[in-house]
Design a protein around this nucleic acid. Sequence first.
DNA 1: GTTTATGCAAATTCTTTGCAATACT
DNA 2: AGTATTGCAAAGAATTTGCATAAAC
Lengths: 135, 135
Amino acid sequence: MEAREVLENHALKTTSCRHEVLGLLLSTPQALSQSEIEKSIDPDTDRVTVYRTLKTFLEKGLIHKVLDDSGATKYALCIDCGVNDHNHEHVHFKCNECGQTSCLDKVSIPVINLPPGYKITEKNILVHGICQNCG
Amino acid sequence: MEAREVLENHALKTTSCRHEVLGLLLSTPQALSQSEIEKSIDPDTDRVTVYRTLKTFLEKGLIHKVLDDSGATKYALCIDCGVNDHNHEHVHFKCNECGQTSCLDKVSIPVINLPPGYKITEKNILVHGICQNCG
DNA sequence: GTTTATGCAAATTCTTTGCAATACT
DNA sequence: AGTATTGCAAAGAATTTGCATAAAC
């Protein structure tokens, strides 16, 4: 999938910042923080524009937030999400060695039984450990 | 359990800020953000001191971070944690209505099967939905 | 009496906002 | 051409650091 194509599908104008950020996320298997993104794109790009780009992508459902144990926010592509049909219920894995966070789309989300009176709308699972590369 | 007692157990001097913050966490069933903590203690307390207090509590294992969907960090007491024996593997629940985050200590952590090559050291589960009070 | 924590000031860093200029379709 | 996005400047928060004073044990 090309960045330009994804942008068109979401009715977003193709600008260089959007193209670069989206292209980066498309080609990176891990979730990236804003600062990591900034380091990997044209250094002349305004930091504010990156903020707004990520915000737009979140709103339009192109990407989702991935939480880090430290509280840092990273971003990753929504793979299976339609515009109004979000599905972020996959497991996120953070490696203690290399620090990289990835979405394990193929790992099924377990059933969680809460006490009576609770209603679940979303489950967010972050697993820590050692990844395949570092193990 | 008294705040003073907990501080002594962890070899921490009893200062008013520590006493207040810890007392607040002891008496609150929900996880609290730094700003929520600041609003509930003596308003003369320096914000920097609260930062340092929370940092110390984290390092000494009195409290742990609880992540929010939005990426905000909250703090909650470590119930079952020894100094070198941490156990944060409980489910965290955030209510979409009241916004409160609580630790569901009694909900068992499900087994998660990762692909070969991954080693798990910790599981962090955040569930969103409607809590008992709001449901 | 020593050691440690606090309070203040200030430096950094992060994030948001307003507005004119620019780029996109 | 018309609308949306960018870049810049600057405001506003959040967080960290250094150091002298004050408090705890």
